[in-house]
């Protein structure tokens, strides 16, 4: 094994880890506040990716400029599902929300297939000239993904630490009843949590499609590593989700040094199970 190969895989790991992190932040926030694993999160990524495709093909925009359309589409879908379906189930057992989100995942995928078909698509065909840094090769898309993720993670951090809505989200995830007693309008904060989670998922979906290609099952296939990332970092902890995403992404890429790439999901699964047994509260989890 050469150092260059290792470094190249490390870079790929950070890139796919970035995409996982953006998805896992939302899963983690939603779990923190609503106490259920949102199985339709990957399909929100797919919705975002295809909404961007619509803007690229319909309006002739470059894909980066189409990102606001991706966010808008995923946010409308997520808030719509929450208000029409999940909201009615808030007072039931969390497992009922989990199962209904599983149903929503299938429904979203089916709608995307009906609209866009099942063949692979790309935003932009043709070859783009890669950048070279020493022996490491970077596609222009990869630079966008890394820079975009860094920007969004910084924005999420500032939002959670500095704004009163962000602090209210953290407060709700600590103790929902106390938040209500404190005067926080829980329903409004829940809606903003969906806006944020879905917005990040949409960007993750566009990044994933830039890195690979569009397909109606693209987001669904990310659910396992995203859950693994959220659990690894400590479910309900957005900062843990970022760390977890990067670790899972890097571990999956590095595993290809010894294993067939077909085993990548198994690597994520193994890490998830290992964490659940050894340290179920996650790397950054406190006492929970």
């Amino acid at each position: 094994m050469y150092l260059a190969d290792f470094l190249q895989l490390l870079v790929y790991g950070v890139i796919s880890g970035s995409i996982l992190a953006l998805g896992a932040i939302g899963v983690s926030l939603i779990f923190g506040i609503l106490r259920f694993a949102h199985f339709a999160h990957g399909d929100l990524m797919t919705v975002g990716a295809f909404c961007a495709l619509a803007a690229v093909t319909g309006l002739g925009l470059p894909v980066i400029a189409a990102i606001p359309f991706a966010i808008l589409g995923a946010v409308v879908v997520a808030v719509g599902i929450d208000q029409t379906i999940y909201r009615r189930l808030r007072r039931t057992a969390p497992v009922i929300l989990l199962i209904s989100s599983f149903g929503m995942a299938m429904a979203l995928r089916a709608v995307i297939q009906i609209i866009w078909g099942t063949q692979d698509r790309v935003y932009q065909s043709g070859i783009q000239l890669p950048y070279r840094i020493g022996d490491i090769v970077l596609q222009p898309a990869h630079v966008w993904i890394l820079a975009g993720t860094a920007l969004l993670v910084a924005a999420v951090h500032l939002f959670l630490q500095k704004t009163s809505l962000g602090k209210a989200m953290r407060a709700m995830s600590d103790n929902m009843d106390l938040a209500r007693v404190t005067g926080i309008n829980a329903e409004r904060v829940i809606i903003w949590t969906w806006v944020m989670g879905a917005g990040l998922a949409a960007v993750a979906g566009v990044f994933l499609a830039m890195d690979t290609r569009l397909h109606p099952t693209m987001g669904w296939h990310m659910m396992l590593p995203i859950f693994a990332a959220a659990i690894l970092g400590g479910i309900g902890k957005p900062y843990g989700a970022i760390l977890g995403g990067l670790i899972i992404g890097v571990a999956q890429e590095l595993s290809t040094l010894w294993l067939s790439p077909a085993y990548k999901p198994a690597v994520a699964f193994a890490i998830m199970v290992f964490m659940l047994i050894v340290r179920p509260q996650g790397l950054l989890g406190g006492r929970r």
């Binding site: 602090k167 407060a171 600590d174 938040a179 005067g183 406190g286």
Partner: peptide, 14 residues
Amino acid sequence: VFPSLTVQENLEMG
């Protein structure tokens, strides 16, 4: 109290 929030943030929530 909100355990993961600082003292000041707890007060701000009020």
